[in-house]
Amino acid sequence: MRSREYGPDLTPPWKRQQPAPKVAAERDLVVEEAATGFCGAVVRCERTAEGFTVTLEDRFGKHRVFPLVPRGFLLEGRVVTLVRPAAAAPAPPRGPGRTASGSVAVPGARARVARESRIYVEGRHDAELVERVWGDDLRIEGVVVEYLEGVDDLPAIVDSFAPGPGRRLGVLVDHLLPGTKEHRIAERVTGDHVLVVGHPYVDVWQAVKPAALGIPAWPAVPRGEVWKEGVCRRLGWPVDTPAAWKRILAAVDGWKDLEPELLGRVEELIDFVTLPGGAGA
């Protein structure tokens, strides 16, 4: 008797789950997540450690993140598989190129030998944001940016650095408001060759414009609650500060994504440490 060979799937054809149509998760496309019923417009797609995800925003402005899985969403009542949208073709160059800070790019320019002058930035996230937007400019100018763990360390750093002609020190600190401890320390160390500036935000996250992240505004977090964790909760993000910061930093393409209160202060520091004849050229 001739043996019969069967495939691994013995489900009758009429019972097999049909593949869902694939739909590009273009921005503002309104879909419903099949498992939870959450309905919202697509804000962004991004790669994470667990795979690709899509962020949806409902009519109340709440954000939720879902994995891009087969048959995971409903579009006008039909089951679909959301996929990443195709990358847009690069626009043809128009005029001179620009760095992320808006400066005219210098193709092929080599980083100059580091100046003696330095910029210190309080906070690791602040330093990473400065590097993302002004990194190209700083390398061309030969300005080294160093991480300042806390403003309490500033007097000792200034003493050790020994500022003077040709050896200037610029410092960017968080939440520099009159009457605060940070402001008193800044006044104590500021001099002809030391400039301390700051932004008014509780955290540098707020220096990123909400529009860059597709949110209406940074949420208010009550005093007594850890601010970053409170932000994550109110935006519907996992309470994972490093992951949240990666998402925020990835949304910054250049100076237009930052608030002017930070832009002006960083530009002021760069000008201060690169003044001709005063910055260790």
Rank of each mutant, 00 (worst) to 15 (best):
L10I: 14
P13R: 15
P13L: 15
K15V: 15
K15F: 15
Q17K: 15
Q18V: 15
P19Q: 13
K22W: 13
K22F: 09
A25K: 07
R27Y: 04
D28S: 11
D28P: 08
L29S: 04
L29C: 03
V30Q: 09
E32V: 11
E33M: 09
E33A: 12
E33D: 11
A34K: 13
A35V: 13
A35R: 14
C39H: 07
C39G: 07
G40M: 01
G40H: 03
A41D: 08
A41S: 14
V42R: 02
V42F: 02
V43S: 02
R44H: 08
E46F: 15
E50Q: 15
G51Q: 04
G51W: 02
L56A: 06
R59I: 05
R59H: 11
G61A: 07
V65A: 12
P67G: 11
P70D: 01
G72F: 00
L74I: 10
L75W: 03
E76I: 09
E76P: 08
G77M: 09
G77P: 04
G77K: 03
R78G: 02
R78Q: 14
L82N: 01
V83M: 07
R84W: 00
P85K: 05
A86H: 07
A87I: 05
A87N: 09
A88M: 00
A88C: 08
A88G: 10
P92I: 11
P92D: 11
R94I: 04
R94F: 04
R94T: 12
P96T: 10
G97N: 02
R98Y: 08
T99C: 05
T99G: 05
T99S: 05
A100G: 03
G102Q: 00
G102N: 04
G102P: 01
G102C: 10
S103P: 04
P107E: 01
P107N: 12
P107V: 03
P107A: 05
G108Y: 06
G108N: 09
R110N: 08
R110L: 10
R110F: 10
R110A: 12
A111Q: 05
V113C: 07
V113A: 15
V113E: 14
A114K: 07
R115W: 07
S117Y: 01
S117C: 03
I119C: 02
I119R: 00
Y120N: 04
E122Y: 08
E122G: 00
G123T: 00
G123Y: 06
R124C: 03
R124S: 12
E128H: 05
R132Q: 07
V133F: 00
G135A: 06
L138I: 00
